[in-house]
Design a protein around this nucleic acid. Structure first.
Lengths: 205, 205
DNA sequence: CCTACCGATCGGTAGG
DNA sequence: CCTACCGATCGGTAGG
């Protein structure tokens, strides 16, 4: 009969993930050795391998945890908001989530491409709910978009704006994260309404 | 007096950059050895170092070349288009540039963060002209935006949409690159006009 | 004595 | 849960 896991097994694993996430964000995945991670945890390298199957597994777990955390924040924001304000609320929640987990966002953006295709696909599956929440909120804000073949492209446009934000945003700049979430959703909603109007000009009026 | 460089020195250097770019895009910078690059060029490793100062220099040169190529394409498109059509023209040119240099775009997105801060800063300086062309085209399309403190954020929103495109675009999907350039500029222009109208409601009418 | 370039190997470190 | 290691490979440079 296999010996049961120590009571603090999951704690240790979390500690390793947190330490690894910091190092991956600072130096990049390939330049971080498992020995670096062990040192940061004051563990031996073999002990790290007691809690973690492989370095690659560790990266996948870190990114998956991050996406699940974002999804939870965004889902909560969507639930709380009225349909009219839902898109702004989820955009705010996403950018706010990036603020709190900025190292994790960096790992997600920079290291995902380094994973083999199956691991990437499984992470994209985890991301699907997050995308769906945004699609639904967009369709609620611009009803003409619901069921449109352009809904996907418009949703991804908004994701592009929000995810690219980290590339140019400065904390000491003139525009806060909240203001940018407001600007981005405003651009998308007004743009999508205009698009719908041009698609079906004077349908009913 | 130093002997002049061989006549094909620049050709050889271009060959190395091209081979390295392919490998960096396929396997990532850190997982590509200088030996891999040498093998792809049918050269010895020391011979590669005759043409290249370091592996890191090679990465910087590849990204700088790429940004300069994109800037040239976009600048040409801007010159040819009338002011009203300029934003669409530069967006088309950028997405078309990504199609033709898709490996280079991947390197730019994925490997830039791995460079030391000074190298990143020098590449961002090279990028400045590209950003400026987009800002100017935006200000031409939405005159109310010219001189606005929001011009930067709106420009970066468009860059976000266009640069994020490679993350979800499928060649076999329902929407072409051209159609997406059209959609993205349409969203931005209509959104920016709406924004300006809300900023200064009924200024003159 | 120059450059261009070779075969061989340097000191360190990677994941496991 | 540690020290001690492995097969392999890294970026860069030696002498000639």
């Amino acid at each position: 009969m296999p010996r049961p896991r120590a009571a603090d097994f999951d704690d240790k694993r979390r500690q390793i993930r947190a330490a690894a996430a910091l190092l991956f964000a600072q130096k990049g995945y390939d330049r971080t050795s498992v020995g670096d991670i062990a040192r940061a945890c004051a563990m031996s390298k073999p002990l790290v391998y007691h809690y973690v199957a492989s370095k690659e597994d560790l990266l996948v777990a870190i990114i998956a945890d991050h996406i699940e955390d974002l999804t939870q924040r965004v889902r909560r924001a969507a639930r709380r908001a009225a349909p009219e304000g839902r898109l702004l609320a989820v955009a705010q929640a996403l950018l706010d989530g990036y603020r709190q987990t900025d190292a994790l966002h960096k790992i997600h953006i920079n290291e995902l491409a380094r994973l083999p295709a199956p691991a990437q696909a499984s992470l994209m599956a985890v991301e699907r709910e997050l995308v769906a929440i945004f699609s639904d909120a967009l369709a609620a804000a611009v009803p003409e978009l619901a069921g449109s073949p352009r809904l996907t492209a418009v949703t991804m446009s908004l994701f592009g704006m929000l995810n690219w934000h980290c590339m140019w945003f400065r904390t000491d700049g003139p525009m806060s994260r909240e203001a940018y979430a407001d600007l981005a959703t405003g651009l998308i909603v007004a743009g999508a309404r205009d698009l719908a109007a041009r698609q079906a000009p004077v349908a009913a009026a």
